[in-house]
Each structure stands twice: as C-alpha cells, then as structure tokens.
Design a protein around this nucleic acid. Structure first.
Lengths: 233, 233
DNA sequence: CGAAGATACGAGCACTTGCTCGTATTTGCA
DNA sequence: TGCAAATACGAGCAAGTGCTCGTATCTTCG
C-alpha cells in the first residue's frame, strides 16, 4: 500500500527492492510499532527505531525518507488490518435481526482483540503529539467506522433525528476508545470483566435508543441495512 | 502552594520575592497554560513560554529552575482549583438522599464547567507525553476524585463487591474523561446536548448498580456518607 | 544616599534530534 | 566471473532544545 512502484507521480523512481529489502522494511515497521507504542510519536527517535530493528540509522534511511514516512507506513499497515477487522464485524451482518447484546458482542470483541494484537496502534492514532497530516491518514478508517456505526443505529432506530444519531454515534465511539485501553492493560479475568463493563456501558446507553430486541423479524429476507454499500474504499 | 518558604528541607532558602516577582510568576504560569494547551508538554519550549509571558528566557529561569517546575507549579494551581471544585460538588452532600439524575447533575456539571474554564488543564494532565513525576503530581487529586466517586457508589450500593465497585468507578471516570472534551469543544446548544448525552451514558451504566431512587429516607438524620472524612489532603 | 539583593536581559553553551554522506559489502543477473 | 545496483555502516552535521552566565537595572531599607 505504501510502496506501490507505480504510485506517487512526483517522486523519483521508487528504487528496485530486493527481497531482503522488503523484509527489512517490515522489520523496521515492527520495531517502530514497539518504539512508538512505548514512547509516543514525538519522543520516539529514529536512532532508537533503527537500534530496535538491529540496523544503523543510515540503513534505516535507505528505506524510509524520514520519520513521518515510517509512521505513515505503519499507519497504513494498521489501517489495512483495522479495515479487515471492521469488514469482518460489519459487512454482511443484518444488525436488525440480532438482540442488542449480540450486536455489542459482534462489534466490541473484534475491536478489543485488534487493540490487544496491535499495541502500537493506539499510541500512533490516539495520541495528540503528532503532525496533522499523520492524523489525517487515520481519518478514512475513522470515518468508515463512524459511518458503519451510524448506519447500524439508523437501521435499528430509523426515526431518530440525524443530529441525535450523529451524537449517539460519536459518544458511543468515544466510550469504546476510552474503555478499550483499560481492557488492553488488564489481563485474564480482569480483562474479561472490563470488556463486560464496556458492553454494559454501551447497552445502558443504547438500549433506550435502539432497543434490545431485534427490530426485524428473524424469518424475513435480508433487510436493507446489509445491502447498502459502504461509501468509502 | 509551590513556593512555601518553609517547605523543602533539602533546598536552599527559596529566595525572598518582591511583589513584582510574585506577579511575574503568575504571569509565567498564565503564559505556560496557553503554550501547554496549544502545543502539549513536550512540544512547548521554554523560550516560547518566556516569549508568551513577555520576558527573556533568562528572566524565566530566575523564577522556575526548569521546565518541569513550571509545569509542576501550573499543575499545583490546577489541582487547587480542581480540589475546590470537587469539595463544592461532594463535601456535605448526602448522595443517598438524591435521585441518581440529581447526583449526576451535581457531579458532572462542575466538572464540565471546570474543564471549560481551564483549557490548559487537560493538555497538561491527560496527555501522555510528559515525565512520570509530572503525572504523579496529578495523582493526589485523581485519587481524591476516585475515592469520592467510589465512596458515593459504596454509599448507594453497599452490597456491591469491592472489586466490582472499583471497576465501576474507574469506568465511570473514564467515561467522563472521554466525553467531557466533546462538550468542551462544542458550544451553545450542541454543548448542552453533549452534556445530556454524557449524563445519559452514566445513568444507563449506573442505574442498574446504584438505582435511580434515593436509598435513604429523606427525613432521616445525616447519613454516614457525608460525615466520613476524606483521607487525603 | 548607598549597598545588597531581586529582577531583567539575551547571546550562547551543552546536548539531543532527525538525517546525510562517503564508503564498504552483498546481491542479482548477463 | 564481473559489474551495477541494492544494502549496510556509523561518524558527524545542522537545527533546535533546555538552560547558563556575565552583566545591567531596579527595589528595598539601613
């Protein structure tokens, strides 16, 4: 996604890579994820990333022109994984035929799992200490997630005014963003209990709005909510 | 609070200040609050703070020995205000005799108002890009808040297991921390609507735990919850 | 008044950061 | 095998940071 040789008209030819080089680039991203996760974007030094990857600073700059390009490539990698996660959770599922508790299970669990599997993700995306253009890279997927959630709410509560629906969506996403780190930081039973709390919060907030019971009969043909295509990507 | 001449046995005598100097120190903190708010702790430069305060870097260091001391003094100032806010909201109030909706009004509104009145606060306390000892400065007040909330929950739900009570407290506070910035960023009706959403979230989460109705009869003598002294400060 | 100390200045020091450059080694391919 | 390109190195540069220092002015108070 980042090193497409045909992309970027303004750039010089993006240099032929050997298989070894491709591997190095992935290793660098792995190292960068760890360094970003534990230090944040600003505090993470390129020398530290190079050291973590087991190479010299000069070698690092053979593959990425600057620090931001590293973060960008890492962000692209995260975005791709998150997109896949989102698709697995949302696409092809008719949320009008599930109980709210089931909906929450299907949506929350993959998100938590993703954050556990990718420790650097939150550090890179949720921290406020990064250049604006880096934050922009995350916006497509943020928007896609927001749209998916808002669509879910619209399907179950078609009469909710648009402004209120937007607020409900925004608040719900903030809740997930706020509580997920708690679950990630915990382990074992405490982590599971935290996830349960997260779902309780969402249930208590959303139940009055979109109801607990399915809004569509279980034996009907697929409702429109699943066939409406997502607008981005 | 920071420059108590009798405190800090290991330090040299902390220099006699003229009234002018005291004013300068306050001006420096005002300037620092703005710079920290817009740039974050790491990105904020001492030269920028000095410039914002209208003085030279050298003059700045006549009053604060280093950058962290500035942040520390600013944090102390915020903590004092937040403590006053918390006392006004919690002390002398018997939360067992109020409906949950009233409890939320009494607790949430001052917190939101405080965050609106002190834009630098969140920048200094909620950002992850600061030294650990700086974060520690915020812990007394964080703990006091946590204790106050946990006590509130304990008063209304005495049978809740301690571990669950702690989780409920932690999650509730995270929710406030996550949604409050949304309210601060909004204005007018949208801000009010966001605060309403925040209270809805808390109500939906807490109502199954601590109930909506008062847990103590309205005509009794003051219950224990208000007389138990707070342990810190 | 006059001296001690508080306040003020701003060039610049010591250090760190992202990044470069000259050079050496390895790989792919004819 | 030979050679061009890719990979690798690491000392060190330019810029930016927190902070210092020598010096000058202003306040306080005997």
């Amino acid at each position: 996604m980042t090193n497409d040789p045909t992309a970027g008209g303004g750039d010089q030819r993006p240099r032929r890579r050997q298989a070894r080089g491709e591997r190095r680039m992935a290793e660098i991203l792995d190292a960068a994820a760890g360094v970003f996760a534990s230090a944040g974007y600003e505090a993470a030094t390129t020398n530290a990333i190079a050291a973590a990857a087991g190479i010299s600073p000069g070698s690092l700059y053979q593959f990425y022109p600057n620090k931001q390009a590293i973060a960008q490539a890492l962000a692209d990698r995260f975005v791709a994984q998150l997109r896949a996660t989102r698709q697995a959770a949302f696409d092809g599922v008719d949320f009008t035929r599930l109980r709210l508790a089931e909906v929450l299970d299907r949506v929350v669990d993959p998100i938590v799992a993703f954050n556990i599997a990718n420790p650097g993700f939150k550090a890179l995306f949720a921290r406020p200490d990064m250049p604006a253009d880096l934050t922009e890279a995350t916006q497509p997927i943020q928007h896609a997630l927001h749209a998916a959630v808002e669509e879910l709410i619209a399907a179950r509560a078609p009469d909710l005014p648009a402004a209120q629906r937007r607020r409900t969506t925004q608040v719900s996403m903030r809740i997930v963003q706020a509580i997920t780190p708690l679950a990630v930081a915990a382990t074992g039973a405490e982590r599971a209990a935290t996830v349960v709390e997260l779902k309780k919060v969402l249930f208590g907030y959303l139940e009055p709005v979109i109801g607990d019971a399915p809004t569509a009969p279980a034996s009907r043909a697929p409702a429109r909510a699943r066939t409406r295509p997502t607008s981005d990507e």
